[in-house]
Design a protein around this nucleic acid. Structure first.
Lengths: 162, 162
DNA sequence: CAAGAAAGTTAGACGCAACTAAAATCTATC
DNA sequence: GATAGATTTTAGTTGCGTCTAACTTTCTTG
């Protein structure tokens, strides 16, 4: 049985409050959106075009979900889309997708220095990539460069991890 | 006008496919859940108890949302909850919450080495913390230790970031 | 060039996690 | 100890991103 709580405990105003949710702002960049853009640009680069089946397979998602998201992204001006035809990224969409892929690569390169298995690297990059600021990304990039040029550092690191 | 796409393009089976979504498994650990647990344990540690108002204020969320999540977490055995009374973490819930807070701290310590503003650090940690494996976390921890003991390295790093 | 197969779309539903408005309960104070 | 105010809960919606089933369009191939 829990005791009732005395109301004398004042709710301290909380200094570290996260920023107010920007609700329903058009064309906000969510995780799923970024996954699609990344996937689409990669498909275009690797096989010249991005088809719904391939997007669905790559992201392990049902095809109707791809159609739905495609329409959203089109409405937001990130890609061009004609029913039953094909998908093209707009300039804005391509710029965004490129940035996303670059982020992905920066993170992957960093994690590779730790000698983790590829599956872990892949999952963690997938998880983190959508939530990192440019500033931190720059730091990670610099860090990777440092690790690139200092094998001794990498060795020390891996030893400490064991 | 987009041209129709020749179907000769075979969908390459895709080697890097992410793992199948574990759908609807009971008590899965989602981002929101982890945020609540983290917040609740911190409130308990800092003021002896976690009240819905304070949770709502801290997470910048409406109070009814707190009730809803509280009930979910209770149903999953992560906390004990009696209507209109109070919230207590179960052993499992507390263990989980501790791990979450520890993760948070590891990430914060690492990012602090890069000389970023606290707001950026906070936001990025918030974003990344829910998506990092233990392995990568260990690597980050070791990395932080390395940076702790090598100010020269930190200096080189910050120079490279500018 | 006409099936049949493959790809894409629509329609309808669901779960999560949030919201507002209104009702219920608790606490403090007089 | 009644009551005003604070806190919590219920009820009912909403938006995102997913799903399945069924339908339409496009492609391929005999």
């Amino acid at each position: 049985m829990l005791r009732a709580v005395p109301r004398t405990t004042k709710p301290t105003p909380n200094t570290t409050k996260p920023a107010k949710r920007t609700k329903a702002s058009p064309a906000q960049s969510t995780v799923a959106r970024e996954d699609y853009l990344e996937c689409i640009l990669q498909l275009i680069q690797s096989k010249g075009l991005a088809r719904a089946v391939d997007i669905a397979t790559t992201l392990d998602i049902a095809q109707p979900s791809v159609t739905a998201m495609t329409q959203r992204l089109a409405a937001e001006g990130l890609l061009t889309y004609e029913k039953y035809r094909g998908i093209t990224l707009t300039n804005e969409g391509e710029k965004l997708a490129s940035a996303i892929i670059q982020r992905h690569q920066i993170l992957t390169r960093l994690l590779r220095h730790f000698g983790l298995d590829e599956a872990t690297i892949y999952r963690d990059v997938e998880g983190m990539e959508h939530h990192i600021s440019r500033k931190t990304l720059n730091a990670f990039d610099a860090l990777t460069a440092e690790l690139d040029r200092s094998p001794a550092l990498v060795t020390r690191l891996r030893a400490a991890m064991a």
